[in-house]
């Protein structure tokens, strides 16, 4: 079973004016020029490759890092690569006020922890969440702590299906566990 808590260094996706970027679409996360790729391990280097100011993200990110972004993250296309590129980089979680619907499903199905928090915009605006901070998140209770700044906040805990798929590993493994249950 996977760990229910995660600690990692955060990257807060800010624009040039220091504002949390909203509506980041899948062409900014993983550009359509690389949709021919079917090997997950080859997708990491294209992560955020078309997002102004973050095109060098793949080179900076380390396994376990946590992404913090603005609302409607993952708008646009249905491409799984926009999730898999972060899996390739071993990103530990993504925190945003909200996700685009298909993106959220894709992340859940791939077992990437995606968590919503209405507090994020406020915390970022108040410099309570900054790139480089160490953050602890409990996926099941929703308790989160910015260890670097001593600020605690809430995220929405994983829902039942999300948790079950996460614990199984991905949708395929979860499906097999259902077969056994039946």
């Amino acid at each position: 079973m996977k760990k229910r808590t995660h600690r990692g260094r955060i990257w807060v996706l800010l624009d040039r004016n220091g504002k949390l970027i909203e509506d980041i679409d899948t062409d900014q996360i993983y550009h359509n020029a690389f949709l021919h790729i079917t090997e997950v391990s080859e997708m990491g280097k294209h992560a955020l490759g078309n997002l102004e100011g973050w095109k060098d993200f793949a080179g900076k990110a380390a396994p376990g890092d946590i992404l913090v972004a603005g609302r409607n993250f993952g708008a646009g296309s249905s491409r799984q690569q926009a999730v898999d590129c972060f899996i390739a980089l071993k990103i530990g979680a993504i925190l945003t006020p909200s996700f685009a619907s298909i993106y959220f499903r894709n992340a859940v199905n791939s077992g990437l922890p995606v968590l919503k928090s209405a507090r994020i915009e406020h915390l970022v605006a108040g410099s309570k969440l900054e790139s480089g901070d160490e953050v602890d998140v409990d996926f099941l209770s929703g308790r989160a702590l910015n260890v670097s700044k001593g600020v605690s906040f809430e995220v929405e805990p994983m829902g039942v299906v999300q948790r079950e798929i996460f614990e199984a590993g991905n949708l395929f493994a979860f499906g097999r566990s259902l077969d056994r249950r039946d």
């Binding site: 499903r105 991905n170 395929f172």
Partner: peptide
């Protein structure tokens, strides 16, 4: 109609 990623669709092909 609903767009889905390749994991969902592979699962849907099978199930």
């Amino acid at each position: 109609g609903q767009g889905m990623g390749d994991v969902d669709i592979a699962f849907a092909f099978r199930t």
